[in-house]
Design a protein around this nucleic acid. Sequence first.
RNA 1: GGCGCCGUAGCCAAGUGGUAAGGCAGAGGUCUGCAAAACCUCCAUUCGUCGGUUCGAUUCCGACCGGCGCCUCCA
Length: 501
Amino acid sequence: MSLKLYNTLTRQLEPFEPLSPGRVSLYTCGPTVWNYAHIGNFRTFLFEDLLRRWLELSGYAVYHIMNLTDVDDRIIKEAGAKGLSIKEFVAPYIDAFQEDREYLRIAPAHDYPRATHFIPAMVRLVEGLLERGIAYRGDDGSVYFSIDRFPAYGALSQLDRRELRAGASTRVSADEYAKEDARDFALWKAARPEDEAVGAAWDAPFGRGRPGWHLECSAMALDLLKRRFKADVLDIHAGGVDLIFPHHEDEIAQSCAYTGETHFARYWMHGEFLNVRGAKMSKRFGNITTPRDLREDGIDAGAIRLLVFQTHYRQKLDLTDEGLRGAQEASRRLGEFGRRLLDRVSDADSRGFVLAGSRLRDEVREAFDDDLNAPRAIASMFDFMNEANRLLDAGERPGPSAVAEWQTADAALDISTVPRVTEIRPIIRPPIEGEPPMHLPEDPPDDPEALETWALAWATMRANAKAQRDFAAADRIRKMLRGSGYEVRDRRDGIVELVRL
RNA sequence: GGCGCCGUAGCCAAGUGGUAAGGCAGAGGUCUGCAAAACCUCCAUUCGUCGGUUCGAUUCCGACCGGCGCCUCCA
């Protein structure tokens, strides 16, 4: 069994074969940095992260490009309102995106090209299209792509060319009059005073202006691909379902018209939406949740990843508090188990672990190879966990192979929340005659380090109270510690675990 | 109007032409001074509705009901 991926281009599952053996070029549409990206945006980035990780675990050397769109209508408008250049306006959102990305454990792309850094490549592309007679200059000084001169248009979205016109009637753009055909799209937009004011205008042979929405992706992908792979065709291009039309359709049109290739990317993959109460997450609906919000609510990245991956990437996912809570608990259990497994590792796998490990490997591989069926892979991880816990309880020990299989599965998904545990062996001693009683403040200190010391001291106190069978005192201390974010676990071997909640 | 997706237990969610994975929640039990963690057991004769094809359909086909997305700058 080898990797099969669903290709939007053919609407079919296809065996994945990169153009050059062993190497994969992957381009994923990144954020428009006009605001904090929300968890719906990140669902797509998480799906792409899984794709990237699984390709790498399958032995491919992946070259992953994710663009940062740092010039568009919204950015120009917001920057203008704040009296900032687009460059200044965008900077904090780029930082925030990278912070959120790290928080969600999304592997960094190899390149994060910014639209404004690739103006020359875009100009070359537009010039090329003008030379080929596929693009034209409108009366408004903008440059448009003529859909009539690109017969393959519409292949990705399977939209009938004639139908596009009817649909467009509800949203007629202001510069409509300049186009030869309502369906044509802007490659280059003539500079307006508002653009100039925020530094969003560049000189070009065909007139001063700024790039259209789709242009950047084609220009940057082709430019980077040329440098790195000496090629004009991407292996995989991914994004959210809403990008199929017009964004990706237009990327294909301009790229292929420019390169003369049949494909811009051979595999097009699209992740479904994350919804809130059935509606898509969107600024317009005011139902935005960002990773930073979830982080503030104490939700671990592992839980968010688990929640997202428990639904197949081509299925809609509804974000609910209950779902989040459930994922948090499940993620914690996986992390708890991972810790237990590593704690008991030995030189050789017991018979039970050999079997459980090889079953996990087979199931996980089969699941991911089947169009990244993460829900099934996760189910296999839970099956392994349950079996392994049973084996551990029965005294069996895992060896390198079982541990490696577990770690491979977790390396693809990264859905565990490992508990923060401090283990102590408390010093038990009888109270000494005449010794003044230990005085520990009941209020926890604010400083995290002092808090840890404080908690450990109380845990020791509690162990002593227990040793003297003063269970009332012991239970009181445990309750107090819980109130300060520590759970106390008494192990059978006398070690006390303090778990930071 | 065009293109497309979805409807599986309280909640989330896989799945197959041969009789329903997994997670959360819930119930009971083991362990524990009591807990926590872990383990064991239980928890959909049924997969939106109605027809059809078939020896057999949740899985294929049709209709209907319900929810959702895209149709020019939204992941």
